[in-house]
Write a protein that binds this DNA or RNA. Sequence first.
RNA 1: GGAGCCGUGGUGUAGUUGGUUAACACGCCGGCCUGUCACGCCGGAGAUCGCGGGUUCGAGUCCCGUCGGUUCCGCCA
Length: 588
Amino acid sequence: MDWRRTHFCGAVTEELAGQEVVVNGWVNRRRDLGGMIFVDLRDRFGLVQIVFDPNLLDDGVFAQAEKLRGEFVVSVRGIVQLRPEGQANPNLKTGKVEIHARDLTILSAAKTPPFEINRAEDVDESLRLKYRYLHLRSKDLQDAIILRHQVAAEARNFLNENHFLEIETPMLIRSTPEGARDFIVPSRVHPGEFYALPQSPQMFKQLLMISGFDRYYQIVRCFRDEDLRADRQPEFTQIDVEMSFVEQEDVMGLMEQMICHIIKKVKGITIDGPIPRMTYQEAMERYGSDKPDTRFGMELVTLNEGLNDSEFRVFASTISTGGFIRGINAEGAGTFTRREIDQLTEKAEQWGARGLIWMAVEEGTVRSPIAKFLTEGEINYIVESLRGKPGDLLLLVADSFKVTSEVLGRLRLLLGEQLGMIDENRFDLLWVVEWPLLEYDEEAGRYVAAHHPFTSPLDEDIELLETDPGRARAKAYDLVLNGVELGGGSIRIYDRSVQEKMFKALGFTMDEAMSQFGYFMEAFEYGAPPHGGIAFGFDRLIMLLAGRDSIRDVIAFPKTVSARDLMVDAPAPVNQSQLQELKIKMLD
RNA sequence: GGAGCCGUGGUGUAGUUGGUUAACACGCCGGCCUGUCACGCCGGAGAUCGCGGGUUCGAGUCCCGUCGGUUCCGCCA
């Protein structure tokens, strides 16, 4: 028998009733009633019920059907029939029909899998990762991987329509000291020298602009040798974009169209109007975060004004040293037990606060360990400023702007979740703009690029590079979705002298800058167009669209938090001869 | 580098103040069953409780260490 399929399992519908079809797939489940066998056959497109009825079959075929077990790979030839009255299965796309088998070929038998494919979600993750190819058979992962493909396809459609070219850039490049730790690759041809895997194709895409390609994109793998998280893998994918002859608004305008296009196409959700913009400063003031989750309120409030004359020592010393007293209102959390409040305090301290002040609002009064140190006017001021109602819990932190932002911003997220204030069905997009260009790194004792060293300062802030670098703002923009940084980009420096100032501000000597980035700065001297771009975290985007909480769920073959691939068992030692060839010797 | 949680038949879990045959569900194997769809009914096999050490007459249970997974902090745009 020719076993090759005529139709996909998931595509066998009423219109085919009466027709002979051949389907190929995996046995999802079998129900052997003795005289009659039902099998749900699975492929990428869904399930279809096969009926093995001895009255319609050769004995030999029925005997074969009795051998079927879960995950056997088979080909079935049969007639599509409408199911008898009352026998339709509304849970199945193909539930109105079934295939009455005439012939069966077992293409591949299967051992009993180490876990049930249909219930893989609860199984220990190390087992699922070892048998990733089996877990990938589950509907959840298939859906995620299919969604991933659709998003990539829609991104390409949109960018292609808009005159972008997809251009590949090298994977073996030069290590640079800025940013994350590089993965390095030894060179056999040049013993003692190393390539690095790209953290992003940043300089290459800028050089492509200088080459005149005008609009570039790439759905590209990037590598960072840093510790992992639920949303961080050592290799991950970006939608990388760069455009010439543009200003910030041009990039943001087009890219928000792209994201809205993708969300519309794959989720059917229309996002109205332009995506809201917020400056970095405003985000920090209102949400204590540079990537605020705007799906709920609980905004931070600064309370210095009414507490200027407070005699409470914590407040007085904070204000006299130029610090801030800021708070949030955890609505309805007044019922928290002492233990729950202690846990919040513990978190606050872990995040850098010296303490957490709480105030439970009650009918006409407040309950708080610091109430006795405050005047009635001060208490009223705090309650009113935070719009406290009976039953609310007010939480205050007194410290620097940075610490109060950090701590209250995180508490806000924690409480928003605990109190069920987050509407999981919302897609809240937000642009955060006017980023600081540089941040002071206490450890390194110098400024480091907040974004990367090629980000252009605002025109009016260029001078600050030499006078007060910490105050310089950048032509940078981040797109935030539900409190997750989806992507970030900037208008780039395209003038050699500005780029030199930037390196100088970062503490590079001219020699260092030249040896690391000389080729790049030289390129600016041969006619560089104004340009800018953006890169989106592709895996994170898929994770959010798929409603998952780990990017491992949207990557076909992910690594564990200790950066291992449990399926291929990598990393692994190599032969002595391989090391020899590379002139590499182990230290221990 | 640090902290938390998890680890018991193939899978998911239960396992009392440490006590003798480690329980349940799913899966698997066998039997019965012609309209099931998480089929049903009957029977069966399957576990040195992640690994190592310690306390104890006795450890799945207590202690120490270690390995693996995971979440978070540091790190990372």
